[in-house]
Design a protein around this nucleic acid. Structure first.
Lengths: 126, 126
DNA sequence: TATGATACCTACAAAAATGTATGTAATGGC
DNA sequence: GCCATTACATACATTTTTGTAGGTATCATA
């Protein structure tokens, strides 16, 4: 993560939004790749390298960053095995798993929205 | 909105994530102030100035930007009255309103997460 | 004629998020 | 001794998001 200026308006606004449990929740899941990671882990525990393969376009840096944040926020757990070459496994925590049904609902809403949009577009043709 | 470089990896990744209906949904609601606006409008149609008063820390520029995006994405509707001084009202659309129960669920999850975190912290005291 | 009200707009600046390129440790097998 | 493997770390560059400061149009009213 890049450094953050503690007293910028930007940063203060972020803190202000943390007070609301809704925007707080969005802050926790809002990173670009976080939900994809969560959905992968919902299918089962995975190693770093497996995640990298599954999430096609993510870079190692981004994967690491998002994993670190998810871990810091308690949505996933990180298990390191003292082996060489290293083996690190990531698993959803309870609270992380509780986000999954909401993701499903969001997925459904996204699907609906998309059909809505393309549906509106198709009305142009008759 | 600021200009966007169509062919940056950043931009291409955004498009890639648009393919998934889950991350697509998050893109639609992910702006910093968007959900606060939606929740306000869920209480009823509101004028620009009312929103500004309700959402304490938002600047006019940000309010305008987020409203424009929400409108472009069909989550809210904008009604202009030909009066002086101008009067503009914003209302949730159907698809926008369908996001509300999901926001409620997210709010609940946020509350749970927060109590989880502070709960863990409090275990330090005994 | 000046002022206030409302809902913006614009140029610019700052901050944050994301991506690129390269390097590292440890160890087993060749 | 050299290489491959894995899960990162680090410095840096680019892109995007957010915030700052000022301005605009219209018309009724003072």
């Amino acid at each position: 993560m890049a450094k953050i200026k503690e007293n910028s308006t930007n940063s203060l606004n972020r803190k202000f939004l943390t007070d609301c449990n809704l925007t707080y929740a969005v802050q926790l899941m809002g990173g670009r790749w976080k939900l994809l990671i969560l959905m992968q882990l919902n299918a089962g525990t995975m190693r770093y390298g497996e995640l990298k393969k599954k999430i096609v376009n993510i870079t190692e840096r981004m994967l690491t960053l998002q994993l670190r944040e998810l871990e810091a926020d308690g949505l996933i757990a990180r298990q390191v095995y003292a082996e060489v070459p290293p083996r690190v496994e990531y698993t959803l925590t309870d609270i992380g798993r509780q986000l999954v049904p909401i993701c499903d609902a969001l997925h459904g809403w996204g699907t609906l929205h998309r059909s809505h949009v393309s549906g509106e577009a198709s009305t142009l043709f008759h």
